[in-house]
Write a protein that binds this DNA or RNA. Structure first.
Length: 464
RNA sequence: GCGUCGGUGGUAGAGCGGUCAAUUACAACAGACUGUAAAUCUGUCGCCUUCGGGCUACGUAGGUUCAAAUCCUACCCGACGCA
């Protein structure tokens, strides 16, 4: 059933968990490690798909919670699926809404985020032991699912693991995630344990629902084969994964994927399109800061029949590398791992070194919109006074469209004048920068020079 | 020339006797941002400071008052109206 999805390891980093590989999906290959650009509401803010492709983006990630609220997953299904709706032809992922359990729940209105910056993790105080501390929030967790109050209009919604998977099937991304509970590192151990068993139960339920929906698709697809085969030349096109996501290959891929039993050249209805596409489901490991819980989670989730794994949670900066290592030593090597929501250059090196294949992060695009751009020597805030008359290059040697075409002074002007193209140009640069950074890590693994590459890069790059 | 209204910090514009170094917005300066509640948010924004406070400020010059950005007088400038 999952011929269309597979992961192949090409080379490993000697003495480390890191590896370079290829993930194949119905919409093309992802050369890993790879950076996944985030397009929460079915668009990477301020950037169009062609600009993504031209700047090295292989795969994007949208969000279940947001699209369910607006415009609605049923509508997207009716439109022919999210790929078609948002005009993204390459591999596509959707997050399950699990992170919103956290960001609209415990973290709502607080200074807790994906990464908590503390100098000493032992200083993290366990503030609370139960779900209800009386603070205002838009998400409330129950054992069966989560009540959300829409951040858009305040309406109440209830999302269960089954509901999340159902929505994600309607959206039709190539890789989808199990519904989980992301916890704050400030939670005490008792709560982490409770949340983890919930996440594990939800993982199982997500998987069951996913299989059920996949089977329905299979049945419908085989019915189509029976209906169609006697008619044409019975030329059933074997499915091949397109190597790239260019226009021409996309057409071929399209008809091949739809092909499952139909002859080439036949046009498909959006409905048929969706039914034909299998999806890969990733389970998510949690466990907070506890080594015992992290390892337990990796064992439990790792033993389930997922196609790959996400590593989730809100981290204290210093905890991140150990947590990733604990988990990846246990997760099955032959399946891909995605470190959820992480994207600072230093963290990407850490992740790759410790066996992470995919990363997604809003950072590069968000900071771009707020005037911060990556350079080989660290980030710069283009709004700083010193750039007003700086006619130099944004990032010397960068081959992105923005850097090849515009000066720092021009970018400074666009941001000061609040011209919207400023956000686009800065996003293009940051996306190119971060995507290329991970692509270069991949190449260095293949070349056997990962450690040197890492040291050289980080020597020049000081985040602060 | 007469009359009316008005002149406040980089700008606009509150304040109309003490709680005013002066609301607010913008600009300016800096910071933050890691599975997007985000083209967002935070801080600073007269000068000096041992951070207690000190000094100079609301067109200019006088005056009234214990106390004036706030009241009075003259002058300068601006807008509008009448000549």
């Amino acid at each position: 059933m999952k011929k269309e999805f597979n992961f192949k390891i090409e080379k490993k980093i000697p003495n480390f968990l890191g590896r370079a590989g290829v993930i194949s999906t119905p919409h093309g290959d992802i050369l890993t490690p790879s950076f996944v650009v985030v397009g929460t509401k079915g668009t990477v803010k301020s950037v169009i798909p062609e600009q993504l492709i031209n700047n090295g983006v292989q795969v994007t990630l949208a969000n279940t919670y947001h699209l369910y609220l607006q415009p609605g997953d049923e509508l997207i299904k009716e439109a022919g699926g999210l790929h078609k709706f948002m005009n993204w032809k390459g591999p596509l992922m959707t997050d399950s809404g699990g992170f919103q359990v956290f960001s609209l729940g415990v973290a709502y209105g607080k200074e807790i985020s994906k990464v908590v910056t503390v100098t000493d993790p032992s200083l993290l105080i366990s503030e609370r032991s139960s779900v209800d501390d009386g603070a205002p929030r838009l998400a409330t967790i129950g054992n069966d699912g989560v009540s959300f109050r829409s951040h858009i209009d305040g309406s109440l919604h209830y999302i269960t693991p089954e509901k999340s998977i159902e929505i994600q099937h309607n959206l039709g991304a190539d890789i989808i995630f199990a519904f989980d509970e992301c916890t704050s590192p400030t939670e005490n151990n008792r709560y982490q344990e409770e949340a983890l068993s919930r996440t594990h139960a939800w993982a199982k339920r997500s998987l069951i629902k996913h299989k059920e929906l996949e089977n329905i698709k299979e049945d419908k697809a085989s019915q189509k084969i029976l209906e169609v085969q006697p008619l044409g030349e019975s030329e059933v096109v074997p499915l091949k994964i397109p190597a790239s996501i260019t226009e021409e290959s996309e057409d071929v891929a399209h008809s091949q994927v739809l092909g499952r039993g139909r002859t080439r050249g036949q046009t498909s209805s959006p409905e048929q399109h969706l039914q034909a596409l299998p999806q890969a489901l990733f389970g998510i490991v949690q466990g907070g800061r506890s080594e015992i819980l992290r390892k337990k989670s990796a064992e439990v989730i790792g033993s389930m029949d997922f196609d790959g794994f996400g590593i989730g949670g809100s981290f204290a900066k210093e905890d991140m590398s150990t947590a990733v290592k604990w988990v990846n030593e246990i997760l099955p090597e032959e399946k891909p791992r995605h470190l959820l929501g992480i994207g600072e250059p230093e963290d990407l090196f850490m992740g790759v070194e410790n066996g992470v294949d995919l990363f997604d992060c809003v950072g590069p695009t968000r900071i771009a919109r707020n005037g911060t751009m990556f350079t080989k020597n660290g980030k710069i805030n283009i709004l700083n006074a010193k750039f007003v008359k700086d006619f130099g290059l944004i990032d010397e040697g960068c081959e992105c469209y923005t850097c090849k075409s515009y000066t720092r002074a021009y970018m400074s002007h666009l941001f000061r004048a609040k011209e919207m193209i400023g956000a686009t140009l800065a996003s293009i640069h940051n996306i190119y920068f971060i995507t290329k950074l991970v692509a270069d890590m991949r190449q260095s693994i293949l070349d056997g020079t990962f450690v040197e590459y890492k040291n050289t890069f980080l020597q020049n790059y000081k985040s602060r």
